[in-house]
Simulated scan of single mutants.
Amino acid sequence: MWGLYQNQPAFVLGFHGCDAAIADCIVSGAEHVLKSNKPYDWLGTGAYFWESSPHRAMEWAEDMAKRPSTNPRRVQNPAVVGAIIDLGNCCNLFDSAALDELRNAWDILSLLGMPDGSDVPENKGSTPDRLGRYRDRAVIEFMHELRKQSGLPDYDTVRAAFPEGGELYPQAGFTARSHIQIAVRNPRCIKGYFKPIATG
C-alpha cells in the first residue's frame, strides 16, 4: 500500500571493518566489500556496513584481530573503509510496514517450515545480544523469496537497529554498542568507497 515510500531518497555513509590490506584494495577499486552469506547473518545475505559509525566498524575489526583464524582474509591490521550507499528499495526495519512484512514472513515460515524440510532454526547466543541470528536470517531470506514469488521488486538493502552490548548504565534503555546496520544486497547501490579521515 505504501510501497512508493520504500525507496529511500538520500545517500548514507556506511563503514566496514576489515584488514588494512583489504581496505586498500577496496579503496583502490581492485575489489568490493564481499557479500556475507553466513547462516547467522541477521539481515540475510549482503555486504554489511555500520551506518555513520566508523568507530563501531573499527571496534569490530579490532575485536576480529584478537581472535585466532585461518581465514586468508582474517583481520591482522584493523582498518575501516567507508562507502557511499544509495539505499534504493530498502527494507527499512524502522518502518512499521516493513516490520509487518517480516512478521508475515515469519507467520508463513513457522507454518510451512524450511524449504528443505528442516525445522526453522533458533537464534542462539549466551548473551542477550544473541549474535547467532540463525532464525532472523531464515525469516529475512524467506521474506525475499515471498516477494519474488509475488512479483514484488527485490529489496536493494536491508536496514535495522541492533541493540548490542548490554545496558549502557544501570536500568538504561540504551545499550553500550547500539548501532544501525545495513546489508547491501544490490552492489549497484554502492556508489563509491573512501578512506575515512581520522580526527582527534
Rank of each mutant, 00 (worst) to 15 (best):
A30V: 08
G88A: 04
C90I: 02
N37E: 12
L87W: 01
I84R: 12
F15A: 07
T70C: 12
T157C: 12
L43N: 06
M64A: 12
E122W: 00
P39A: 10
S96L: 13
S52G: 12
I182H: 02
E59W: 09
M143W: 10
L152M: 14
V158T: 13
S36R: 10
D119R: 14
S118K: 10
F194S: 06
D24K: 14
I182D: 04
D24Q: 14
M58Q: 10
I140C: 06
N123F: 02
D24S: 15
W42I: 02
D63C: 11
A105I: 00
R133C: 11
D129K: 00
D136I: 02
P121E: 05
F162Y: 12
K195W: 00
V184S: 00
I182P: 01
N7Q: 14
D19V: 03
V158W: 02
K148C: 08
V139F: 00
T70P: 05
G132H: 01
C91R: 04
L152C: 08
I140M: 12
F194H: 02
G29V: 03
R56L: 11
T175H: 12
L131I: 09
G192S: 06
A61I: 06
N37G: 07
Y193V: 02
K124V: 09
W106K: 09
I197D: 11
P68Q: 09
E145V: 07
M1Y: 11
P39G: 06
E164S: 10
G82H: 01
P68M: 08
N7I: 15
M143D: 10
R185E: 03
Y193C: 06
Q8Y: 15
E145P: 03
D63Q: 14
Y5V: 12
C18E: 04
Y155P: 03
E145C: 09
G166T: 03
L111Y: 10
